[in-house]
Each structure stands twice: as C-alpha cells, then as structure tokens.
Simulated scan of single mutants.
Amino acid sequence: MDNTTSGASLRLSAALLLVGQLLYIGVTQLHAGGEANDHPTIFAVYAGSGNWTVVHVGQFVAMGILLAGLLALYFGVDLRAGTARWAGRFGAVLAGVALALYGALQAVDGVANKQADAAWVRAPDAEKAARFASAEAIRWIEWGMRSYHDYALGLALLLFSVAVVRTAWVPWPIAFLMGLSGLVYLVQGWVVGAEGFSQTLSIEIVLAWVLSLVWMIWLVLVSWRMPESELRRLAAEGRGRPGTIHSSSG
C-alpha cells in the first residue's frame, strides 16, 4: 500500500469511527427509558414506544459505520511488522464478528422483544403470565447477545490497540485509550451477562463512550493534520516507531 492510500485510509477510518460513535450516542438518547431491570414496568414502556423500530435500525446503522471505521483502520496503519500485523488481522475478524452479533442483537431487541412485550400488554388476564414469561425469556436472550457482542468489540479494540501502538502513524496515547475502552467493553460483557441492564452497566456504557470519543477525536485531528511529507518520512523509516527501528538496526 502506498503512502497516499495509507493516509487516506487512516482519515477515512478516523471519520467513520467518530461519526459512527456520535450517531450511536445520539440515536440511543431516543430509546425508550426507565428502570431496565424492572421488567413489568419497562416491558409496558417498550410496548408503547412509537419509535422503537427506527431507533434500533439507527443503532444498527451507527454500529455498522463505527465497525467499518475499525476495519478501515487496519488498512490505514498499513501493518507489516509481525505482531502488529497479526493483531490487526485478528482485530479485523473480531470487528466483523461484533457486527454480526450486533445484527442478531438488534433482531432480538428491535423485533422479538417489541412484539413479545406488545403481546403481553394486549393479552387477556388468563394469558398474561405465559406471555410475560415469553417476554422475559426474550429479554434474557438479549442479555446474552449483548454480552458476547461486548466481548467481541472489546477484544477487537484491544487487538487494534496492540497493532496501533507498534506503528509510528499515531501517538501511543491513542492506542492506550483504545485499549482501555476495549477493557471497559469486556467488563460490560461480564456485567450484562450477570446483572442485565443494571446501573453498573449504565455507568460503564457512559465510560466507554467518553473514552472512545477522546481517542476518536484525537485520531481525527492527527490523521487530518498529518502532512503527506510526514507520511512519506514514516513510511521510509518503516512501520514501527522510530526509536524501535533505530535500536533494532544498530
């Protein structure tokens, strides 16, 4: 890959990541709210939500944009060193897995959950207990899908942070914050699998958003302000960090 292509891919990646994250946060603010683990109350809220389908389609689109940005990052940093290249490859695979899991999650949450909740609300008294049990079972499936999506996304971010920190294209604190956000997603996966949509999970969601926005905005600034001459210089020196390159060649 030539220098111009690498620079363009890095800028595209940074833009997609930030746009996807901002869109996801914005759309999620429109999601029907309430105490998510109080199932009788929240199921009634979900059943009456008028924008449920639009919100969940919007979340899926936003997540797709974000993960496309993560995949573009693999090409943007033009990995050639062994460890960085393999970390990037596995990270790219896990980004694809995360998107597939998120699609399944939105099918469960955006379609099945809504229909089950609406059926419970409309059911005659004699059927309400059975309908509620069905709605709750779907909710628990949602917990499981969300848990493993978070695991996949967290691992993808960790692997990409390993790849990025071994290149000279971006400052190492970006890789550090990326890895830290990946760890938060891993914790989210554990919490949602054990507790559902608890207050602890809500705090971790906000923390992951804040960390992600910081490194994504930083990546945008770096990628769009980096002159092509600097890209050529870094490419001429190699894909690793200059200090590492010089020490290994001495």
Rank of each mutant, 00 (worst) to 15 (best):
D109N: 11
G110K: 09
V111W: 15
N113Y: 11
K114N: 02
D117G: 04
A118G: 04
A118V: 00
A119H: 07
A119N: 09
W120D: 03
W120H: 07
W120P: 00
R122D: 08
P124E: 10
P124F: 13
D125R: 15
A126Y: 01
A126P: 00
A126G: 05
E127P: 07
K128Q: 12
K128E: 02
A129F: 06
F132P: 02
F132G: 05
S134D: 10
A135L: 10
A137G: 02
A137Q: 14
A137W: 10
I138A: 12
I138H: 06
R139M: 04
R139P: 00
R139K: 09
R139N: 07
W140V: 10
W140H: 15
I141A: 15
W143L: 02
G144N: 09
G144I: 01
R146L: 13
R146F: 11
R146H: 11
R146V: 01
R146T: 01
R146E: 03
S147E: 04
Y148F: 13
Y148I: 07
D150R: 11
D150I: 01
Y151S: 03
Y151A: 09
Y151W: 12
Y151R: 06
L153N: 01
G154V: 03
L155R: 05
A156M: 11
L157I: 02
L157V: 00
L157F: 13
L158Y: 11
L159P: 02
L159I: 02
L159W: 07
L159R: 13
F160K: 06
F160H: 10
V162L: 15
A163D: 03
V165E: 14
V165Q: 15
V165R: 15
V165P: 05
R166G: 02
T167Y: 14
T167N: 06
T167I: 09
A168C: 11
A168T: 05
W169T: 02
V170K: 14
P173T: 03
A175K: 13
F176M: 12
F176H: 04
L177Y: 04
L177V: 03
G179M: 06
G179R: 08
Y185D: 03
Y185K: 10
L186F: 08
L186C: 10
L186Q: 12
V187F: 07
Q188N: 14
Q188K: 15
W190H: 02
W190P: 00
V191Y: 12
V191L: 14
V192C: 09
V192Y: 04
G193M: 04
G193L: 07
A194C: 01
A194Q: 13
E195K: 13
G196H: 10
G196C: 07
F197W: 13
F197L: 13
S198P: 01
S198F: 06
L201I: 00
S202V: 01
S202C: 03
I203P: 01
I203L: 15
I203H: 14
I205K: 14
V206I: 10
V206N: 10
L207W: 03
L207H: 07
A208K: 14
A208R: 12
A208N: 12
W209K: 08
V210S: 11
V210I: 15
L213V: 02
L213S: 10
W215Q: 05
W215T: 00
